[in-house]
């Protein structure tokens, strides 16, 4: 997710990254999750809804765990 060559990261000038793919993906998952339970009503659609709405939460937790599990990573690697 955030793999930077240390040299580049330490230079202080970060390369531009694609900002939107992740937020858009999570947003689409949310929309799908909200609608699949509403329109599908039962069975597989409910399960898909739960899965889709869980993913933004899971992704957030993974990001937080990664950030907190590497406290000594000074400098660039965010």
């Amino acid at each position: 997710m955030n793999a930077f060559p240390p040299a580049q990261a330490l230079s202080g000038r970060r390369p531009a990254v694609a900002v939107w793919p992740w937020p858009i993906a999570l947003g689409l998952l949310t929309v799908f999750g909200l609608l699949s339970a509403l329109l599908g009503q039962h069975g597989i659609w409910l399960a898909l809804s739960w899965a889709a709405l869980s993913l933004p939460l899971i992704v957030t937790v993974i990001c937080l765990v990664r950030a907190w599990s590497r406290p000594s990573d000074k400098g660039g690697r965010s």
């Binding site: 997710m1 990254v17 957030t60 993974i62 990001c63 950030a67």
Partner: peptide, 8 residues
Amino acid sequence: KRLPFGSV
């Protein structure tokens, strides 16, 4: 702009 998604 210069920060990968999910950086903290």
